[in-house]
Design a protein around this nucleic acid. Structure first.
Lengths: 187, 187
DNA sequence: AGCTTTAGGTAATGGTATTAGCTTTTAGCT
DNA sequence: AGCTAAAAGCTAATACCATTACCTAAAGCT
């Protein structure tokens, strides 16, 4: 039995990649084991089980999304930053639907859960966008939730093929960016 | 063995209620069978299986949501209609988190899938709201997608407890309604 | 070299969905 | 009313999945 040389990070990365490929709902321990060249029970040497694997994939996805959004807005402010953040976020969800699906409905178990940290990083990136607008303190939290709802809603609907008459999705997204920008500037 | 007198609609309704109670992820054929007072395999006389059950629950949820939103906007127009629709939609999701969760990521198999019809009904209710604003033809589809993304995103994030610092969610929602209203009027 | 740790394997358990085939109730027809 | 056939329910069996217990051998350390 030659050793494969796995570690938790490699297992989680392979799980995320597999989720993107076959869909998060179809990600199974057996399939992942086969993918990394090992028998199913051996995975338990690296992750606690399916639930733990899912949480780690979700945390990975949120961190990657935060990196993508945070990187995209570097050097931009105002509407440019908003557009860059929105596009980066949507691109991430479209390119990695499986791992992003892992984040839906996953709530952090505690304040030092890596999942919570990753989520806060993503929120921080969106918050940085809002700093480019002149928004009163009392509106900041609401505006942040608005952005999050809007991008999350659009991305998940698109990922689920929710827009049936599917023409012009890109155009709709750019329209959304302009709409949010006008609204934020009007505050 | 006294007959229970089940039928597909009753099974689906019980499944939706059970999903609301225990969470969609925990909805199992065995649990549903126990709930309706029958052994598990008997359910297959009424629904095709778990996948079919899930789709029917999703279609039921979308139809109910469409009824709720459509009913709420009767007699209102403009901002009042927008607020009524948004509140009705969110109330439905909050009161029926399990069955609404069934709709997430569920894509219609074809144009005459009952799921597609139900989705179109819900879209129609939102479209009725938009008719209360003076929106150019070219903006209508984009605006519809914006509303859908916004409410869907907010509802799913709240249902998933996605807003961790969870104070003032109601206030944020009212803020969102005002934000959308201002933006739509500015078109 | 010898020892300890650990990644990997096999075997077994429990839970789940699903199918096959049987039995009995019920509805429909005469 | 009585007969018949469809349908609703059941038990038994199968397959798959996650998980645990326990064993084996590879790798690292002294």
């Amino acid at each position: 039995m030659p050793r494969v040389g796995l570690n938790p990070a490699a297992v989680v990365a392979a799980g995320a990649a597999l989720a993107d490929e076959v869909g998060f709902a179809n990600l199974t321990m057996g399939l992942l084991a086969e993918q990394v060249g090992v028998r199913t029970p051996s995975l338990y040497k690296h992750v606690g089980g399916q639930e733990d694997l899912n949480r780690r994939i979700a945390a990975l996805a949120l961190n990657e999304a935060a990196d993508a959004v945070g990187g995209a807005i570097q050097g931009y402010a105002g509407r440019d930053a908003l557009a860059a953040a929105a596009r980066a976020f949507r691109a991430f969800v479209v390119e990695h639907p499986g791992r992003y699906a892992a984040t839906i409905g996953m709530e952090p178990s505690g304040p030092d859960d890596p999942l919570a940290t990753a989520g806060e990083r993503l929120l921080g990136a969106f918050m940085a966008v809002l700093r480019g607008y002149e928004i009163g303190e009392s509106d900041l939290d609401h505006a942040l939730r608005m952005l999050r709802s809007l991008w999350h809603g659009f991305a998940t609907l698109q990922a689920a093929n929710g827009f049936q008459w599917s023409a012009d999705i890109d155009e709709s997204f750019e329209w959304l960016i302009a709409f949010a920008d006008r609204g934020l500037r009007a505050l």
